[in-house]
């Protein structure tokens, strides 16, 4: 990342990289901050000028990497609409939290076109979102039971469903409250973050 830190123009490929990397870190942050996995299974690294916690659990790493790999492909084709992290009770299966990342792709920009946006600016936007995720513990209700999580991806209708994926129901929360978080844009992709949770 150090080599690109001074760049002021981004291609589609660079933008996809930034976005999927952001997803990786924000998913890890959510898993840590919401206490879904034991805190001792996370390791601390520096990213976006913040101390980020990333899972050191191998099973979880493989799981996330395979999702992100697929996501990168879809992002490149511009077919992703949303990425949703669903936090559900392990035994009840009830959806307790939904972290939604809305992705809007500017499809008019071709593969080799460069757009102007300083990398630094994007990083500071991302930093703000990550900070908000960290701060979310202050208003989100406590996850009483042991929880697990699931990743949903909203794609365009014409996308071929890969083997490892299946169509799912959106797993909405009945009677939920929503808090919008900040957003960031690479001028190719725009990501809006929000979290909804059980209102009562």
């Amino acid at each position: 990342m150090a080599a690109t830190a001074s760049k002021t123009a981004i291609t589609l490929k660079g933008s996809v990289e930034i976005v999927s990397e952001f997803f990786g870190y924000s998913i890890n942050s959510i898993l840590y901050q919401r206490g879904i996995y034991p805190p001792e299974t996370f390791k601390r690294i520096n990213k976006y000028g913040l101390a980020m916690l990333v899972t050191a659990d191998e099973g979880l790493q493989t799981y996330l990497n395979s999702i992100l790999a697929q996501l990168t492909e879809w992002l490149t084709h511009g077919t992703v609409q949303k990425l949703v992290l669903v936090v559900a009770g392990q035994d009840s299966g009830e959806t307790l939290e939904r972290w939604v990342f809305d992705v809007q792709t500017d499809k008019s920009i071709g593969e080799n076109v460069k757009v102007d946006k300083p990398e630094k600016e994007i990083m500071s936007e991302i930093q703000a979102i990550i900070r908000q995720i960290t701060a979310s513990v202050t208003f989100l209700p406590l996850l009483e039971e042991a929880c697990t999580f699931d990743m949903l991806v909203y794609t365009d209708d014409d996308v071929q469903v890969p083997k490892a994926w299946e169509e799912s129901d959106p797993r909405y929360i009945a009677n939920s409250d929503e808090v919008r978080l900040r957003s960031f844009t690479t001028k190719i992709h725009r990501v809006d973050a929000s979290v909804s949770y059980k209102a009562d």
């Binding site: 990743m151 949903l152 991806v153 909203y154 169509e167």
Partner: peptide, 11 residues
């Protein structure tokens, strides 16, 4: 849109 979920579940 299609809602897709990863088949294998998180550990």
């Amino acid at each position: 849109s299609k809602v897709l979920a990863f088949k294998s579940k998180a550990p």
